[in-house]
């Protein structure tokens, strides 16, 4: 069925207001701050350029002039995460990934082009290959989408504000997404200052994978290239999504790359080839969203110093993936 189940939708939204009393939020009694002020303080505190039109960061939903009751950080603001925020009394969500299911991140679907055979390759397409493709059909307005509408209604009903921080957070040094993984996996004492090198005590790839799976609470999102019995010490961390150029730089100096997401025709085949030609290497993929979770936990901790008026809390996202077992 494709209509929103009203009963389920009402149950979902009602759950948020039924919970009482709200937890007592930390922060400065009597002081108040707006969402715009939170954004301004983050930008001022981090510095750098914030007017790049190519950046995906900024407000995605809600009224920036609203008073913030609490902040939730997350790597993916699913309806489940938004419900948890409402239950906890927080109305500002700071997320590293899109809320409205696309890079466009708008409450209604962007105009779409008809689905074509060869596929688009944002990770690998060059101007030369793009020019070889037939001219794309014209974009047509997307029909109303019940999932976009349901999420937008939920956000409006609960007066939530969504602000995205992705590019700028990843550009911090050291990369907080990498730092979050290091902290979560208990590797802080093995990492150098800029996290370019993490030298853990020697272990098997199989044991490393089990440790990462437990630490990041992965379900079915993990995929591994390499011999489970391989001894690994030096770990290169490539959270989020990375192109082949990044892997080509990282692999020679590491035993294993621990990455969020890579393109399979690039880094997966590169590591597989390296292994098949005798290299003692491995690649562990955990998924882009899971790889960014702990980095948003760091964001919540950091926000306590930048916005002391309200409480900031990290909400982890459940690994979106599962798999049946053969």
């Amino acid at each position: 069925m494709h209509e929103i189940s009203r009963r389920k939708f009402v149950a979902l939204t009602a759950a948020g207001v039924a919970v009482a009393p709200l937890p007592i939020w930390g922060g400065v009694p009597g002081a108040s701050v707006t969402a715009q002020q939170v954004a301004d303080r983050i930008q001022k505190s981090m510095g750098g350029e914030w007017n790049d039109p190519k950046s995906v960061d900024g407000f995605k939903a809600g009224d920036p002039s609203a008073t913030v009751t609490g902040i939730v950080t997350t790597s993916l603001a699913t309806l489940d995460v938004l419900s948890q925020a409402v239950k906890a009394g927080a109305n500002m969500i700071i997320t590293s990934e899109p809320t409205f299911f696309a890079k466009a991140d708008t409450p209604a679907p962007a105009p779409r082009r008809a689905f074509g055979g060869a596929g688009r390759r944002p990770g690998g397409e060059t101007e030369a290959t793009a020019a070889a493709a037939p001219p794309p059909p014209p974009a047509v307005p997307a029909p109303p989408d019940p999932v976009f509408i349901g999420k937008d209604e939920f956000i409006k009903k609960h007066n939530l504000i969504v602000w995205r921080i992705s590019d700028h957070w990843a550009q911090r040094a050291p990369n907080p997404f990498a730092q979050g993984i290091v902290d979560t996996l208990g590797w802080s004492k093995f990492a150098n200052g800029n996290l370019s090198e993490v030298a853990i005590p020697g272990t098997s790839l199989g044991a490393l994978v089990a440790h990462v799976k437990a630490g990041l609470k992965s379900r079915g999102g993990m995929r591994v290239v390499g011999d489970p019995k391989l001894t690994v010490r030096k770990v290169a961390l490539l959270p989020s999504s990375t192109p082949i150029e990044t892997a080509l730089k990282a692999l020679p100096n590491a035993d294993v790359i621990l990455a969020g997401e890579v393109r399979e025709w690039e880094t997966v085949e590169y590591v597989k080839d390296t292994i098949d030609m005798g290299g003692k290497k491995a690649l562990v993929l955990v998924g882009r969203v899971v790889s960014e979770g702990p980095g948003m936990q760091i964001c919540a901790q950091w926000l306590k110093t930048v916005v002391p008026e309200v409480r900031s809390t990290w909400l982890p996202v459940v690994d979106p993936y599962w798999r049946p077992t053969l």
């Binding site: 069925m1 189940s5 993916l76 944002p122 393109r263 399979e264």
Partner: peptide
Amino acid sequence: SGEQQETDGMLDSPEYVLDANTLGITK
């Protein structure tokens, strides 16, 4: 299908399916 980027695409399927299921929509 085979492969798709997880987020920041034309349509981010993992998040869409999670939220569709939350709303009781079959996906």
